[in-house]
Amino acid sequence: MTRKIEVGIVGLGKFGLSLALTLSELGISVIGVDNSEARVKAAKPYISQVYQADGTDSKALEQLSFQDFNYVVVSTGDSMEASILVVLNLQEMGVDKIWVKAVSERHEKVLNRLGVDFVVFPEQFVAKQLAHRLAMPGMLEYLSMGDDVIIRERKVGDWKGKNLVELNLTNNYQVQVIAIRRKGEEKFSFVPNAAQILDEEDVLVLVGSREDLMRLPDSAS
């Protein structure tokens, strides 16, 4: 049986509200709090449980059972001080996993020293995504995983007539095919059949380091 996930979000500005909406669409239970009456009112049509409360008040969070949630995300606008205070309160409450939106590199450094489980710096992350997309046509996603891990599309092109076993991309280029979109189809097929012959109009989705993906030959046929 799948474990039910409950997420608390402190701060319902642009980032916090967008996160709450996406989690709700994925079927995850979300409880949001914000000290702004206007932001709480704006969130109510989309989040089943939203409350006007001061996120820096540990008693308010305890009353809403934040200590029992699987994750708590802290997104308190541009206030570094408020964010740190919320984190300290959540840690004292025994919250299992704390994720925080950083507002500056200094803020990010402090959060890491506090032992926060995950720190996101949205502006920096988006900037990296955009830079990599500009530098590498066909890139779908940049993944920050220590190394520059990238997901990229490539048309089969001159690899036509071969299958994935024959191409042996893992050993030849240290990249992995994670999906294929066949000619004439709109959706990708994941866990592709490695023995199926490829058409030059098929599209492969590859994952690997930026350096390894850059070494791939062009797909021209």
Rank of each mutant, 00 (worst) to 15 (best):
Ala195Met: 13
Asp54Glu: 14
Arg39Glu: 13
Leu85Ala: 11
Met139Phe: 04
Leu134Glu: 01
Ala131Met: 14
Gln174Glu: 15
Leu198Asp: 01
Ser219Lys: 04
Gly13Phe: 01
Gly8Met: 02
Ala220Arg: 13
Met1Lys: 13
Asn168His: 01
Leu143His: 08
Gln196Met: 12
Trp159Lys: 03
Gly77Arg: 01
Arg106Trp: 13
Met145Gln: 10
Asp34Glu: 01
Val73Gln: 00
Val119Asp: 03
Pro192Gln: 02
Val203Ser: 01
Arg181Lys: 13
Val175Asn: 07
Gln196Ala: 10
Lys155Cys: 01
Met93Tyr: 06
Asp54Leu: 11
Gly157Glu: 06
Gln129Asn: 15
Met1Arg: 13
Ala43Ile: 03
Ala82Ser: 14
Ala131Gly: 03
Val33Phe: 01
Ser36Lys: 06
Ala135Cys: 08
Val126Pro: 00
Leu23Tyr: 11
Asp96Cys: 07
Ala102Ile: 05
Val119Glu: 08
Ser144Asp: 15
Met139Ser: 12
Leu85Lys: 05
Phe69Asn: 05
Ile84Cys: 12
Glu141Asn: 07
Tyr173Glu: 03
Val120Ile: 15
Ala179Glu: 04
Ile180Met: 05
Ser83Ala: 11
Lys109His: 13
Leu26Ile: 06
Val175Met: 09
Phe69Glu: 02
Lys44Val: 05
Ser29Asn: 13
Glu211Pro: 08
Gln52Ile: 10
Leu134Tyr: 02
Thr56Arg: 12
Val74Ala: 03
Ala53Tyr: 06
Arg3Asp: 14
Lys162Trp: 03
Asn193Pro: 04
Ser83Thr: 13
Leu12Ala: 06
Gln49Asn: 09
Val50Asp: 11
Gly146His: 06
Met214Gln: 10
Lys155Ile: 12
Arg181Tyr: 07
Leu64Trp: 02
Glu81Gly: 03
Gly27Phe: 11
Glu153Pro: 03
Ser65Asn: 14
Pro137Thr: 07
Ile151Phe: 10
Val74Met: 04
Lys160Leu: 12
Arg152Gln: 12
Gly146Lys: 12
Gly157Lys: 05
Gly27Met: 10
Val40Tyr: 14
Gln52Thr: 14
Ser18Ala: 12
Ser189Asn: 15
Tyr51Trp: 12
Asp78Phe: 04
Val203Met: 14
Ser144Gly: 14
Ile150Met: 11
Gln67Val: 05
Arg210Phe: 09
Gln63Gly: 02
Phe69Asp: 08
Met1Trp: 09
Val7Arg: 00
Ile5Phe: 00
Phe15Gln: 04
Asn163His: 06
Phe66Lys: 02
Glu166His: 02
Phe121Glu: 02
Ala220Asp: 09
Ile31His: 12
Ser209His: 07
Gly94Ile: 05
Gln91Glu: 14
Lys160Arg: 13
Leu114Glu: 01
Leu26Glu: 15
Val7Tyr: 04
Phe125Val: 12
Thr170Ala: 09
Leu90Thr: 02
